[in-house]
Design a protein around this nucleic acid. Sequence first.
DNA 1: TAGATGCTTCGGTCAAGGCCGAAGCATCGC
DNA 2: GCGATGCTTCGGCCTTGACCGAAGCATCTA
Lengths: 232, 232
Amino acid sequence: MANNAVFAEVASLAGDPGRAGMLHALMDGRALTATELARVAGITPQTASGHLARLTVGGLVAVEKQGRHRYHRLASPAVARMLESIMQVAADTAPPRKAFVGPRDQALRAARTCYDHLAGNLGVALADALVTRGHIELTSDAGIVTDTGTALFDTLGIDLDATGKRKGRMLCRPCLDWSERRPHLAGSVGAALCKHCMSEGWIKHVDGSRAVAITVKGQRKFREVFGIGSVG
Amino acid sequence: MANNAVFAEVASLAGDPGRAGMLHALMDGRALTATELARVAGITPQTASGHLARLTVGGLVAVEKQGRHRYHRLASPAVARMLESIMQVAADTAPPRKAFVGPRDQALRAARTCYDHLAGNLGVALADALVTRGHIELTSDAGIVTDTGTALFDTLGIDLDATGKRKGRMLCRPCLDWSERRPHLAGSVGAALCKHCMSEGWIKHVDGSRAVAITVKGQRKFREVFGIGSVG
DNA sequence: TAGATGCTTCGGTCAAGGCCGAAGCATCGC
DNA sequence: GCGATGCTTCGGCCTTGACCGAAGCATCTA
């Protein structure tokens, strides 16, 4: 079955440490240059270039040329979901690893973006708050925004209609967090919420990583709106 | 970051043609012996044995000893979802491949199991029927069983409560079909439906593959209950 | 036009791992 | 017990591909 070969090729593309590092870095949804990706993956630019070429023809990465820079990003949300699910399994497999959490790791666990939505301690706390306040309902399979949730998002100025084709009820997707092992909010609703937090200046990206920092304004807002205390 | 290495290892485990073939075969949710898996993957038993050992320590496969047989199955639903998502990306990447669909491929496209739920032409047709009749609502992110849907499943004798912790609304998960490129019904609801079809004798597994055949009784039932004509 | 910067291609080295044949254990049936 | 069957381990062959240094191309700046 030829299909099988394609499957193996896609999986093996993600199965190299160098490429895995680059894909990991791209999981924040932004587009990065080859040199940046080489640095985070700990390889030389020419090696990264070869990897990126393979990832591009393999359909995992899309590249956009801009002057002398070439910006690379994940080719589709489907790729992001695939990486998420691999991280999921990897987290299950992973050793206890209690000790040795570097500061960088620490920041990632506190709050990070997961392609287009929020994850980490903050992401889980937000999902928890929304659930306990009755704004959303979540199972391991799916989620729904309740009427009060819709109202809340409306007052916050989050446009759910724009992101997903709304028809009657608003559905959303839970995403099991690899660091917290509990679900956070993904899908179009999660993306809209993340985008809102970002544009309102409640959170901002830390240097060139997926980690995000909560601003002072964010601390206040998260407390006021969602009743979330100190996070991270 | 040590985490990255685990990620790459998990992905590379799925990234070998031999292992991919075996994992693909295990996607029907059943447990198979090493020899059976070797045959479907087209490798010798001793090679398969080595692969299976790696898959086991890697946490992708669980093994159960029974007499002189050792039955292998996917270690968790998370692994199944990971494989699904890889197939998803692989299908996007895949060439047009219009010609050259073997009879085996044909059967898979008509109807197959996807770990614990139904996929292929039949799976999509079922999802379509349930949606157009207002029994479920689906987006790309999530799904919900309506009141009439709950009633329908009740009269059919499908116990939704047993599979997922029911709390008020019943949520379910859509799963994009790699052959049809449209969503079919997954999650606990999809699993319950598939289990019901199987136990009622509406469908049955074809030899040792993921393909399922619709029985005569099934043809009648699918028409009566869901209004689905000839499928496949 | 000249130099700096980002990126890719080329060439060669080298380690990882997939593959099988043969042999070794375990378990079942008789 | 004894052979048959399922599976694993061992040893050796061989392909794949990851890696980097050096050089080449493209684009921006001055």
